[in-house]
């Protein structure tokens, strides 16, 4: 079985939103780039699955659509334990564009199980995974909180309103993962970092794809009125404000 993990290279989650060029681009001065947290957990789960020989996983590939500046993030994924990496050399213009590139690669390099995260920490599209599956005409399961392999069968758990359910699927399948998929992200060990330098990072030219959306500009949220402080001895006042001013109870 072959696993593909889609990786998005995103600003660290503590990054302050500051924009430049007439609010058309994020101010990336001093920004730390990380593997999107969901993708890091997906990769962790893939490695856990591979470490059980009974699952007969030959290979874990990570893929990203991005410029050369996303390579340190790819190397980090290799250090954590991916076997090889693919970078489609293009600016990721929107989710449709990104998904079309990934799908194109998978058409000529098939995988049995594809992971993507539920949401990127930058554009918050929750889109790429579902789009890849439709481009490939394969099933997708979303809101996935666990993936197991049992006798060559992929067993998926997904969250539903008020609970969860087990889903089994034909292969290949694309799992869009969220909380629960792995407990803690795996951390690269020194040996992994050394080995990562020798692992293949293949750069692939993009294909021509129409871009369906354009970001015009960014806005910061409206400044919020300062917090109204209420005397801890007078909790009734809070209830009064919630009822009569905010009108939420």
């Amino acid at each position: 079985m072959k696993i593909l993990v889609c990786l998005s290279n995103v600003p660290d989650t503590t990054t302050k939103a500051k924009f430049v060029n007439d609010n058309t681009a994020l101010d990336t001065t001093g920004v730390q780039w990380i593997i999107n947290p969901w993708d890091e957990l997906a990769l962790t789960r893939a490695i856990e699955l591979k470490s059980d020989a009974a699952n007969s996983i030959e290979n874990i590939t990570v893929i990203t659509v991005g410029g050369k500046d996303s390579e340190p993030t790819m190397r980090k994924a290799l250090a954590i334990g991916a076997d090889d990496a693919v970078r489609i050399d293009a600016e990721p213009k929107d989710a449709y564009y990104v998904a079309a590139q990934i799908a194109e690669y998978v058409k000529s390099n098939p995988f049995d199980l594809i992971f993507s995260g539920i949401e990127s920490a930058d554009y918050n599209g929750s889109a790429v995974g579902g789009m890849v599956s439709e481009f490939l005409n394969i099933p997708s399961v979303s809101a996935v909180s666990s993936v197991n392999i049992d006798g060559g069968q992929v067993k998926i758990t997904r969250d539903i309103d008020g609970g969860h359910e087990e889903v089994s699927s034909e292969l290949p399948v694309l799992a869009i993962v969220q909380k629960g998929i792995a407990k803690e992200p795996m951390i690269a060990a020194m040996r992994g970092i050394m080995m990562a330098r020798k692992k293949p990072l293949n750069v692939v030219a993009p294909m021509e794809v129409e871009v369906l959306t354009d970001v015009v500009n960014f806005e910061l949220p409206q400044p919020k009125p300062p917090c109204k402080m209420i005397d801890p001895e007078n909790v009734k006042e809070l209830v009064n404000l919630l009822q009569n001013e905010a009108k939420v109870i």
Partner: peptide, 8 residues
């Protein structure tokens, strides 16, 4: 950016 900003 997870609610830290909006885009048009």
């Amino acid at each position: 950016y997870s609610g830290k900003a909006y885009s048009n």
